[in-house]
């Protein structure tokens, strides 16, 4: 146990870190909340954000999970290279990602032409919003998922195979359940990144407005007071998933961790 001074210090740091959040509630006026959120179409950016983030997460899970697995199981040549690539993406300011995406998937690039053939455009469309969110959230999900898979000993997968499992069956029965808490954390992190994506979105997906863009535009148009309600909305919508994932991860750790023999709270 920390002494009184230690606890007070922890409280001070915690409060300082959460200070801006306090300011949000302090400056949020109920009337502004009512005005901002009751305007016609006021909630459509929320719907846009949720839809785009859900699609982005779906894509990330579909393509990022196998990549993360391959990265951790030495199935790829030059494992460090793959990891470094993800770290570069993590370090890249989102605004820069957006600018580079213009060069990469802009309508007049080869990829842009290919997309046009599919009647898609990665410039100021819902698709562009999804693309921007994927690029902002991908390193968080892939690295998080890789960490989750790393925590599953390869030996356990080998045992499952020796006991007659196909790769997919062992993945479902062993790898996935054991990596699940970590994957949930990664997913929650990616969700928060996708919902809050702004830098890359500002560059390639100004329209249709998602929540962060709505906050920015409202700030420009009518100022802080009108923008804060949307900030609260973003918080309320983006937060539950990470919190649930966190709670679940903590419980899973208690249930199957090596400390379990010390005392199970369920008993």
């Amino acid at each position: 146990m920390l002494g009184v001074v230690g606890v007070l210090g922890a409280v001070a740091v915690w409060l300082a870190l959460l200070g801006p959040l306090g300011a949000l509630f302090a400056h949020l006026s109920p009337s502004a909340l009512r005005t901002s959120l009751s305007a016609p179409h006021a909630l459509s950016p929320l719907v846009t954000s949720v839809e785009a983030s859900a699609v982005a997460l779906g894509v990330l899970v579909a393509v990022g999970t196998p990549l993360a697995w391959a990265m951790t199981r030495n199935r790829l040549p030059g494992p460090r290279v793959w990891e470094s690539g993800m770290l570069v993406m993590l370090l890249m300011p989102p605004l820069v990602i957006g600018l580079l995406l213009v060069f990469f998937v802009g309508p007049l690039t080869p990829i842009g032409h290919g997309l046009a053939r599919l009647h898609l455009s990665a410039s100021n469309t819902f698709f562009a919003l999804v693309v921007a969110e994927i690029y902002e959230a991908a390193p968080y999900y892939v690295l998080g998922a890789a960490a989750a898979f790393t925590s599953v000993e390869p030996e356990l997968e080998e045992h499952a195979w020796l006991l007659g499992d196909t790769w997919w069956r062992s993945f479902r029965r062993v790898t996935l359940p054991l990596a699940a808490p970590g994957l949930a954390s990664a997913l929650a992190m990616a969700w928060a990144r996708a919902m809050g994506a702004f830098g890359a979105v500002l560059v390639i997906a100004y329209h249709p407005y998602g929540l962060p863009m709505q906050i920015w535009v409202t700030l420009q148009q009518t100022g802080l007071a009108a923008a804060l309600p949307f900030a609260l909305l973003l918080l309320v919508v983006a937060l539950p998933l990470p919190v649930l994932a966190y709670v679940w991860t903590a419980r899973a750790r208690i249930a199957s961790g090596p400390d379990a023999s010390v005392g199970d709270p369920a008993l």
Binding site: E153, E158, H159, A160, L162, L163, T166, P177, L178
Partner: peptide, 27 residues
């Protein structure tokens, strides 16, 4: 591996930590 029908018990036993004894034995 799954077609070899080789039974291997490693030093650390390699039990599945998320399954109970019966599920491990019957895996």
């Amino acid at each position: 591996l799954r077609e070899r029908r080789v039974g291997l018990l490693t030093q650390r036993a390699g039990l599945f930590p998320h399954l109970d004894g019966a599920s491990n034995i019957g895996y």
